[in-house]
Computed example of a mutant assay.
Amino acid sequence: MGKLYVVGIGPGGFEHMTFKAKKAIEESDVIVGYTKYIDFIEPLIKDKEVLSTGMKSEVERAEKALELAKDKVVSIISTGDAGIYGMAGLILELKKDEEVEVIPGITASSSAASILGSPLMHDNCNISLSDLMTPYDLIKKRVELATQGDFIISLYNPRSHGRPHYLKECIDIIKKYRKGDTPIGVVKNALRDGQEVTLTTLENFDDTIVDMFSIVIIGNSGSYIKDGMFITPRGYKL
């Protein structure tokens, strides 16, 4: 009998992958994933059958992984955490009687936060600005309500060539409720090759530095910058 591991490989470097994720990949006969993500783990899978597909082929990828897992051990991989904008939900929606185990990984907001300082120390949320799965009006509503609720906000998929204005429009929504000196951190390629870090404020934010490999973290009303680090107080009495 086979098994399907749904593996979050973290940011992409082996040093940030969990032991369990590495073990699942090593135990697998077949590795399934988006082509770029397969490249991140190439040294681990040289002797394995690999099935890779391009973007927007998630359903095809999930169906193939489940089919193979009927009599083989298979890992389907996502960067970050497989349960946060990854493949776990789709696999569980499609599965029938296949054995499936979800293995968590470090999500992009946590990776970026570790570089910026401690921006996520209080209540926070992740919002994707991609409208491939979610109507843009609903995305803007979520941004507005999260801002009103004083959540720290991590923006995933923040800016692409196909929707270059969404990020600016969402930042303009946030400006209605937050002070100009609210910290914003932008991390591109967090914890992997090509990492770039920008720490700025809401009033000085330049959306043009952001791309699809970036995470944007906007602080709450208590967040501040100290010695070049982005800090959100947890509320301890000091």
Rank of each mutant, 00 (worst) to 15 (best):
E99H: 00
T201I: 09
K22E: 02
A88S: 14
P164E: 10
N126T: 10
T134I: 10
L4I: 02
E67Q: 09
G194D: 04
N204H: 15
G105D: 12
I218C: 06
K175M: 09
K168H: 12
K226Y: 13
A113V: 08
Y34L: 01
E42R: 15
L66K: 06
I173R: 12
K168I: 10
F40K: 09
S223V: 02
A21K: 10
G149Q: 08
P183D: 04
I77P: 01
I139M: 04
T53I: 04
S114N: 12
E99C: 01
I173M: 11
A108N: 04
P43D: 13
G13H: 12
S57H: 13
D47C: 00
G105M: 14
I9E: 02
K46P: 08
Y177H: 14
K64H: 06
N189C: 14
P233V: 01
V6G: 11
G185V: 15
D39V: 07
S223E: 05
R234A: 07
F151E: 03
Y37L: 06
I115H: 12
R178C: 09
P164Y: 03
L202R: 13
G149A: 15
K46G: 06
K46W: 06
I152R: 05
H16I: 09
I184S: 09
D71W: 01
L51V: 11
R234P: 05
K226P: 02
D123K: 08
D181M: 11
D47L: 02
D207V: 14
T182R: 14
S221W: 04
P104W: 15
D97G: 13
I76C: 00
K226H: 14
S109P: 06
V216R: 01
L138I: 12
A190Q: 13
A62E: 04
F230P: 10
G13W: 03
D71T: 04
G219K: 06
K95A: 14
I77D: 02
Y166V: 07
L116R: 14
V6H: 06
V74W: 01
E99P: 00
T182D: 05
L129I: 03
L199T: 14
M229N: 06
D207F: 13
K95V: 13
D137Y: 00
N204G: 12
G2C: 03
L238S: 02
V73N: 02
M212G: 03
K36I: 00
I103F: 08
K36R: 07
C125K: 11
L4Q: 01
E27C: 05
D150H: 03
G80I: 08
I152H: 01
F205T: 13
D206R: 15
V30H: 01
P164D: 08
D193E: 15
K176A: 13
V187A: 12
Y224K: 15
D29C: 03
I174V: 13
